[in-house]
């Protein structure tokens, strides 16, 4: 009974916050790793951590942390994938004809994994203190790094 209640709460949380998960996974998907793979990984890790979540932080912060950790640590080699459940037909993050966003994704592809995490949190307008907690770097370092990445993206979008 308790497990069913937990599952129900978990399902409700996923429905509420699925777009966060989708945005994070879309930042890290590439030719070898699909959004479906990463989405499933994030859901599994969220489910694993859900019973121990004591609301010490906001739900969105908690989800960002787990989703980013999952994507940053995912290496496809030597992993036999479990059967992947496709969710991409059901969710779209952006219109494919939205050129600035398409350009953004093209620039994101050239960034490192940690840089992608930083820039995503900046795009999502998360406070610097929260970004610092999630990333594990100082608040000043967050500002410096974000400015550098913005400059990089500006240069990349010009070429």
């Amino acid at each position: 009974m308790e497990k069913k209640l937990l599952e129900a709460d978990f399902l409700q949380m996923i429905q509420e916050y699925n777009r966060i998960i989708y945005k994070v996974t879309s930042f890290y998907a590439d030719q070898n790793t699909t959004i479906d793979d990463l989405f499933q990984e994030v859901v599994l890790n969220l489910w694993k951590a859900f019973p121990n979540y004591r609301k010490e932080s906001l739900v969105s912060t908690w989800i960002y942390r787990i989703a980013l950790n999952t994507c940053v640590s995912y290496f496809r080699k030597n992993i036999r994938r479990p059967k992947c459940v496709a969710i991409t037909p059901e969710i779209k993050v952006y219109a494919e004809d939205n050129e600035p966003i398409t350009t953004l994704y093209a620039c994101i592809d050239q960034l490192g994994k940690l840089e992608r995490a930083l820039i995503l949190l900046w795009l999502e307008d998360r406070p610097h203190k929260e970004i610092s907690d999630i990333m594990g770097i100082t608040v000043t370092n967050v500002s410096t790094k974000i400015n550098r990445i913005k400059e990089k993206i500006k240069q990349m979008s010009k070429t």
Partner: peptide, 13 residues
């Protein structure tokens, strides 16, 4: 994943 910062997880992996 739920308590560690992204940088630390990345380091370990």
């Amino acid at each position: 994943f739920s308590t560690m910062p992204v940088k630390e997880v990345s380091e370990r992996i």
